[in-house]
Amino acid sequence: MTSMPEPAAVPDPNAPSGMLESDLVKRARHGDLVAYDELVRRYQQRIYATLYHMTANHEDANDLAQEAFIKAYSALKSFKGGSTFYTWVYRIAVNKTINFLKQRKNKFHLSLNDIDFNAEHDPDLMALISHKTPTRDVALNELQKKLNEALLKLSEPHRMVVVLHDVQGQSHEEIAEILGCNIGTVRSRLFYARQQLQGYLAEYIKA
């Protein structure tokens, strides 16, 4: 007598979580919201994080991320597949955010997320703040505020490049594709933005 395999151990190829991105896009284009739900799940964290680092405001990032995914769904029929869905939706989110920030201008307030527990065990961060104040969490919160304020002083294109490269860890090529510019522009923007940030955060950076 042969034993039946455990159902949980066999991945279902028809389940949205096991499907390829291109198949999910195809199904979503025909109105399959279950497939689109899976696409949102795959990229929600990265999209949200980028928008949060750009706006320094959780509520704004939440609204913009939702709107970006909604707009992407409504424009899905025009998606030709020239790039990945991920790059395409990223581009929509980035454009939406830059337009939003232009309208917002100086009318903003910080609504920062909490810092996770691991930050207090990061030797690099601890090395930066250990000599500032005796209480680590207070020092971290102060550093977080200063860092976000410094980022907000950068222009949107420069901030976007720093966020995508130095915070999100994306490559120059990916950033160029998302922003629709060449790699040289990405590099020069990154260099200029880092120089600016270095000036704003001089007190925290060892000479």
Partner: peptide
């Protein structure tokens, strides 16, 4: 080298998490 210090500082952004 200076950018390396800045990059270390920017690592703090990766520890900011939503509710």
């Amino acid at each position: 080298q200076n950018f390396d210090e800045l990059k270390k500082l920017l690592k703090l952004k990766q520890h900011e998490i939503p509710p």
